[in-house]
């Protein structure tokens, strides 16, 4: 029964894609959009050849790897710093009192607004890109870790103390695992925002990466290349979030809500 439901779902996805393709073909054959909009054949042939024939210095693989590398650096930094700061805030009243106001102030500023400062501080090379990517993710991870840690069930903490757990053990064996689902929700959002931030950073200034492909396409008037970049962004983004939920299911298999 479950299999049938899954098959039906997949069927609808295929149907959606076909519909999109048909609309696209209609647009470029029957309307005036064909002057500014490339047809599916040229886009897909470019997409496939881009994996063997370089665009700029690298093939598509190279560009994807560059972007992913930047994301991974920023994301890892953000996860580590965010979880530490968030849990500190959630489990210590003093840390909460000191950090939270600063945070509330910085939170509404979108990462893009930091780009000028980032370039001033870190230059136009990799460091400023990492900073931008880190920033957006850091805010999400911190906030979620904070909520997770501060909402740990008091009864569970009491139960652990009754069984002989000291402060450190309560932290590592109760607060940390109890915050995990919330932390993962933060990491999930952070991953998406990292992926967005890397594209912005690459579009502002770079010589490689998926964001650069789009900007390059704009500069040379190559609309097919723009679309190829966009499709790649969509697919990679999808793969990243799916991977995150897969990891979450593995790590938090005890969670009843999953």
């Amino acid at each position: 029964m479950k299999k049938a439901v899954q098959l039906e779902k997949i069927g609808w996805v295929v149907f959606d894609l076909l519909l999109l393709l048909l609309g696209w073909i209609f647009l470029v054959t029957c309307t005036s959009a064909k002057d500014t909009f490339p047809d599916p054949v040229s886009v897909f042939s470019m997409l496939f050849t881009s994996f063997v024939k370089p665009i700029g210095t690298y093939t598509m693989w190279g560009h994807i790897m560059w972007s992913l590398y930047r994301v991974m650096v920023g994301f890892t930094l953000a996860s580590v710093t965010g979880i530490i700061v968030g849990i500190a805030m959630g489990s210590s009243k003093i840390a909460e009192a000191i950090i939270k106001p600063i945070f509330e102030f910085l939170r509404p500023i979108p990462p893009i607004a930091w780009i000028p400062l980032a370039i001033l501080w870190f230059g136009i090379d990799e460091a400023s890109k990492y900073f931008i990517i880190w920033l957006g993710a850091f805010i999400n991870v911190t906030l979620n870790s904070y909520v997770g840690a501060s909402r740990t069930d008091e009864t569970l903490i009491g139960a652990a103390r009754m069984l002989g757990a000291g402060k450190r053990k309560v932290f590592t064996r109760i607060i940390l695992p109890a915050s995990m689902p919330q932390i993962f929700a933060g990491l999930q959002v952070a991953m998406s925002s990292c992926w967005m931030a890397v594209l912005v950073a690459e579009m502002v200034r770079s010589n490689e990466g998926v964001g650069w492909i789009i900007i390059r396409g704009t500069d040379t008037g190559n609309t097919a290349q723009i679309i190829v970049g966009m499709i790649t962004i969509g697919v990679i983004g999808f793969i990243l979030t799916t991977a995150m939920s897969w990891i979450e299911r593995k790590v938090c298999s005890w969670n009843t809500t999953l």
Partner: peptide
């Protein structure tokens, strides 16, 4: 030793 109404088992 305490046994709780809500069981207070560690779900993880």
């Amino acid at each position: 030793g305490v046994v709780y109404q809500t069981t207070a088992l560690f779900p993880w």
